[in-house]
Simulated scan of single mutants.
Amino acid sequence: MRSAMSMLELVVAIVVMGIVVMSLPLILTQVQNNNAFAMQQEAILAAKAKIGDILTYEWDDKSYDATAQRSFVLDTTNGDPELGRIGTTNQRIGHINADNRRKLYDATVALNNRSASAIGSDGGDLDDIDDFSGLPAIALTVTAGEDAQNLDYIFDLNLTTTVTYAADAANYTSSTLGTFVLNPDNNATITNIKTISVQVAGAQSAITLRAFSCNIGESTLLPSRPYQ
């Protein structure tokens, strides 16, 4: 008796093959979606890393005082008056008049040396946040012969950084904060808030992440004390 494929087995084989063929478009679509999602996540990661790096720099090139070894709050020409110095003191509203606290430069310091700078006006020496504004796009590209698995980024990405001032004025009622509308693209001149925008191109569509840095200075580190 010769062995042969029964009609039932043939029908089952045809059905299985049909299901597989019909599934191929869905599989290809899912692969494309996964690749797009991976590129998007790669772009977001690149932008977050760039912003994190920029935020480690001084708020302004005049913020840090090497003699005092601390960053000071700066005077701003268009900042909210409520955030300006109190009279001729080195405090603003909310500051504590004590050593090792956040403060402005003393009023005896020349105004030009204690006032915040316009974006990019200090020569672009990469010592503060706004020096990164307008720099040529940074390409994160995998070239032929490189092992993509050992690199942080495996897609072609271009990062462009823009730093602007954002309006910081708010409405007050009887010295109580009423409303405050933050417009990161305001491009106001020398306020107390800087907007850092990093745009990533190359991930199918441009992605922009923003972060904000404020003119708050820093407190002096207390001297270390020996254990008793």
Results as ranks from 00 to 15, higher is better:
82 E>L: 10
149 Q>H: 13
179 T>D: 03
124 G>F: 02
182 L>P: 00
22 M>P: 07
200 V>C: 07
68 A>I: 09
34 N>C: 08
1 M>P: 10
161 T>W: 03
54 I>V: 07
20 V>S: 05
7 M>P: 11
133 S>T: 07
39 M>T: 12
42 E>M: 08
31 V>T: 12
178 G>H: 03
146 E>I: 02
2 R>K: 15
53 D>K: 12
51 I>N: 04
49 A>S: 09
76 T>W: 01
23 S>Q: 09
209 L>S: 05
69 Q>N: 14
200 V>A: 06
74 L>H: 05
81 P>Q: 06
79 G>D: 01
152 D>H: 13
36 A>R: 14
156 D>L: 09
144 A>L: 14
66 A>T: 15
66 A>D: 14
167 A>Y: 03
159 L>K: 01
16 V>F: 06
169 A>M: 10
132 F>W: 10
40 Q>M: 11
68 A>S: 07
214 C>Q: 13
162 T>M: 08
151 L>D: 09
109 V>I: 04
117 S>F: 10
217 G>K: 00
224 S>Q: 10
109 V>T: 05
61 D>A: 11
102 R>G: 09
226 P>M: 05
59 W>I: 00
60 D>H: 00
57 Y>S: 07
38 A>M: 10
30 Q>L: 13
64 Y>D: 03
38 A>N: 12
35 N>V: 15
170 A>G: 01
15 V>W: 10
125 D>N: 15
167 A>R: 05
175 S>C: 11
181 V>E: 12
145 G>R: 07
64 Y>M: 10
25 P>Q: 10
192 N>V: 00
30 Q>D: 11
185 D>W: 02
18 G>M: 01
34 N>Y: 07
194 K>F: 02
122 D>G: 11
207 I>H: 02
219 S>Q: 08
121 S>G: 03
15 V>M: 12
73 V>S: 01
171 N>H: 12
227 Y>V: 13
60 D>M: 00
83 L>P: 00
127 D>Q: 14
209 L>T: 06
106 D>Y: 12
153 Y>E: 05
4 A>I: 13
68 A>T: 07
171 N>R: 11
93 I>P: 04
100 N>P: 05
107 A>D: 15
177 L>K: 12
166 A>C: 01
185 D>T: 06
118 A>C: 10
97 N>V: 03
32 Q>G: 15
177 L>N: 08
183 N>T: 01
2 R>I: 15
227 Y>T: 14
122 D>W: 08
49 A>M: 12
158 N>S: 14
49 A>G: 09
127 D>L: 13
99 D>F: 07
224 S>E: 13
132 F>A: 04
205 S>Q: 11
71 S>T: 09
65 D>T: 04
153 Y>I: 11
114 R>E: 04
206 A>Y: 06
